[in-house]
Simulated scan of single mutants.
Amino acid sequence: MDSKTLHFLSQLAENNNRDWFQENRKLYDASKADMEQLVGYLITEVGKFQDLGNLQVKECLLRINRDIRFSKNKAPYKNNLSAGIGPGGKSSGKIDYYIQVQPHDQTFIGGGMWETTTEQLARFRQEIDYNADELKAIISKDDFREYFPEIHGEVLKTTPKGYSKEHPEIDLLKHKQLFFIHKYSDKEVASRDFGAMVLKGIGLLKPFTDYMNYVLYEHAAEH
């Protein structure tokens, strides 16, 4: 990506108000176009190993405007550009590949269980109770662990209802969220190879997101 995009986002974080944003609208438009180019590249390349349908760039990009209705933070804009890439785009409701471009080495690719319903969480725990080996085989592979070394997300401090604290998979069962991220430095983001780096991350995430989408959505539809 263009280093100017990171510079714009850094400036926006320091001048997060509508007047400054409108005065620098051309810089935002150029940064948005830069993000669109990255997403377009990823749609094309991911489409070679996963059916994305007729996915369009605009279906993936998230708004830079923040929803401030119920937030104490009234800053009108996010200090990042982001997109959700997967079948159906950002609004599919399913687990996709989330890319967030943010300065100061905060850019990352991620994916996993984040905003789940009570029913989905129950299905996840039921699957782990029944057969945790399939998930563990995916997330314990050397290349996966090297790129995504730790699990992110909320974990119960107590034992989930209906499960023994002696359960052999109690650590996984305590997870309310199960999300993996890989961060990129600003230098990597501004490099010519950034798109290929993100594509590598998506390729490594795919077996995990496939598994989670099956457990949370497709498996439920079969019953």
Rank of each mutant, 00 (worst) to 15 (best):
R66M: 11
P103F: 14
P207F: 04
Q50T: 06
A83H: 01
L172Y: 07
Y217Q: 01
K174A: 01
Q22I: 14
D143M: 05
F108C: 08
N213K: 06
T44I: 09
K136L: 15
N73R: 09
V101F: 02
E166T: 14
Q106W: 08
I170C: 15
K157T: 11
L121K: 12
Q126Y: 10
F49I: 14
S185I: 00
E14G: 09
R63T: 09
H182D: 03
G84F: 04
L55V: 11
M197A: 07
L121C: 08
D105L: 04
I151G: 02
D96H: 00
Y130R: 14
T44C: 08
T118F: 02
P149W: 07
K48G: 07
G53V: 04
K32L: 12
Q126K: 14
E188N: 04
L55G: 06
D129K: 14
K174H: 13
G195H: 11
G203W: 03
Y184E: 04
S31K: 13
G40E: 06
S3N: 10
H167R: 01
H219N: 14
H175L: 12
F180P: 02
E150N: 14
I109D: 10
G86I: 02
M197H: 05
N16Q: 15
K90Y: 09
P168K: 11
Q100Y: 02
T107K: 05
L205P: 03
A137E: 15
N80V: 01
N17K: 12
F179V: 04
K94N: 01
E169N: 15
K200R: 13
R63H: 14
W20P: 08
K187G: 05
F124C: 02
G201Y: 08
Y147S: 15
A190N: 13
Q126W: 09
K26M: 12
L178K: 03
V155E: 13
N24G: 04
V46I: 15
D67M: 03
R69P: 09
P76H: 03
R192W: 00
D96C: 03
G40W: 05
I109R: 08
Q102Y: 03
K90D: 07
L172R: 00
L61G: 06
F180R: 08
V46Q: 00
N15A: 11
A220M: 06
N24T: 08
L173V: 08
F179D: 03
V101L: 08
Q126V: 09
K26L: 15
S10Y: 12
Y163N: 10
R125I: 09
Q177R: 12
Q102P: 05
M35L: 12
A13Q: 13
L12F: 12
R123S: 12
A196L: 00
D29V: 07
M113T: 03
G111A: 01
V39E: 05
R145W: 04
A132T: 07
G153T: 14
D129M: 07
S91M: 06
G88P: 06
V101E: 01
R69S: 06
P149E: 12
P76D: 01
F144V: 05
N24E: 09
V198L: 02
L62A: 12
N65F: 15
Q177G: 10
F194C: 00
K78Q: 10
I138Y: 05
Y28P: 01
S140G: 13
Y97N: 00
I128F: 02
K4E: 14
